[in-house]
Simulated scan of single mutants.
Amino acid sequence: MPRFEPFRALRYAGTDLDPLLAPPYDVLDDADVDALQERSPHNVTRVDVPRGGPDRYEEASETLGRWVDEGVLVRDAEPSFTIYRLRFTDGGGSERDVAGVLGALEVVDAGAGGVLPHERTTPKDATDRLELTRATQANLSPVWGLSLATGLAALLAEPGEPVGRLVDDADGRTVEHVWERVTDPGRVSAVRALLASDDVLIADGHHRYAVSRTYRDEVRAATGRDDTDAELTLTFVAELVADQLSVEAIHRLYAGVDPEELRAALDRFFVRTPTASPDAGTAAAMAADGFLVLVTADGAERLDPRPGAFDDVRSLDGVWLETALEGVAVSTAYQHGLDETLHAVTGGRATAAVLVRPVSLAEIGRTAREGLLMPPKSTFFTPKLKTGAVLRPLTL
């Protein structure tokens, strides 16, 4: 089972975190970064999203070091865990209060167990994150993990020492982010022991975790040691239970294929029925009745699985679509959000889209226990974690 350890966190000294923090680097475009950096000369994107020439990583490292020297960032006097609470209203209108813990999770070899991937990853250039880690010698943004152990949420129910809060209005949703430091030896020991009792499933940040493995191996080769801070990586861990997770769908966009060829392939496995253009109520209807929705320039069609078509296939929309389209020369992309998905079709970026349902927590847990992998981009965990509230230096 993986180690999960407290560490001496690096935090902003100020109490107003709103102009300083940022969403994860991989959801930001250039306009987003410009807007964030206009908010403060100390916005974390100046370190986490380096821009410029080949020396941009060294500049990011120098910026980080300068902020520490100037007292913009201050390192905790002792190791701690940080409770991270997310309070929001989910897509179904329910009030949510999610609590996870930020700590340092052991970096294990692929296939070694203890820390498990939950979906196949799409090809992605990891050079940027690796170069940034080498230069800054820091974990800047956390991996998101799910503990298969029971009881983490209960352990985190009691408040810790308040160290930060902000209210964020993004994507039409208001989210309260709260951070609380935990240094009590008994409580730290309880969290560490619980998370070491069962596997941790990577929910988001597979590439970040892979970069941490590469960096760990480089440090081992350079130092001959396996006891440095590179043996662990910054991770937010929540419990895999319904009230602690909000999972949304990532829809499929298809291009490079004639719509009629796509329909013919789908017709072998689904019954198509014309339906109204998808709206805010479509997701609930899909979940209740068990159908998908095909969207093309000609309109929308309901996709009901044919009886017996998927008897030998896992009950997962992404797997159903991979099965139906096997052998079809089609380019697949992924899009979260109904409006964005529809715009991809009407704007010509995709020939067609298929709206899918969110993956259930039961399926996430079953897949992990059976050592299987879901298709790429099967799950979209929300809200996204803020980068910058807790940084983890990597000292050799």
Rank of each mutant, 00 (worst) to 15 (best):
P23C: 10
A344H: 08
G111K: 07
T183M: 04
H177M: 02
L116I: 12
Y57N: 03
P19T: 13
A288W: 03
D90M: 11
G371S: 07
A283Q: 14
S378T: 12
T223F: 09
V175N: 05
P278M: 00
A190Q: 10
P142R: 11
G308W: 10
G71L: 09
L321E: 00
G145P: 06
P159K: 06
T341D: 08
G65P: 01
D304F: 00
P6A: 11
R392V: 01
A153I: 03
D204H: 12
A31F: 05
L262Q: 11
L240K: 03
T341Q: 03
L17W: 15
T183G: 02
D90W: 07
K384Q: 05
S197I: 07
T275S: 03
F310A: 06
P6C: 11
S246R: 05
D258Y: 04
L316I: 15
A297C: 00
T121C: 10
A110M: 06
G347K: 00
D204G: 04
A138C: 15
W320N: 01
D243V: 12
F7S: 02
A170K: 01
P162D: 05
L152S: 10
G186A: 12
E58Y: 04
F380Q: 00
D298G: 08
G281Q: 09
V115W: 07
D279G: 12
I250S: 11
A255H: 12
D339R: 11
D109S: 13
D48V: 13
T273F: 03
E95P: 02
R75S: 10
R66S: 13
L10F: 12
R268F: 11
A238M: 12
G290I: 03
L294N: 02
V74H: 01
E106A: 14
W67V: 02
V330H: 03
A157S: 10
L64H: 07
G186H: 04
E119M: 07
L195C: 09
A154R: 14
T127K: 14
P376W: 03
D26T: 09
T89R: 15
T387D: 02
V219A: 04
R165G: 05
A362R: 12
D227C: 11
V345F: 00
V33M: 02
A210I: 00
G281S: 14
T387R: 07
D171I: 00
R46M: 07
K386G: 00
L156R: 06
G92Q: 13
T228H: 07
T45M: 03
A297S: 13
V72W: 08
R66V: 02
G299P: 04
P50R: 09
G100H: 08
D30R: 15
T223L: 12
D311S: 14
D48A: 15
G205Y: 08
L394K: 01
D226V: 09
G71R: 11
L146I: 09
A99L: 06
S315K: 01
E370Y: 07
G52D: 08
E218G: 11
S212G: 15
P358I: 01
G281Y: 01
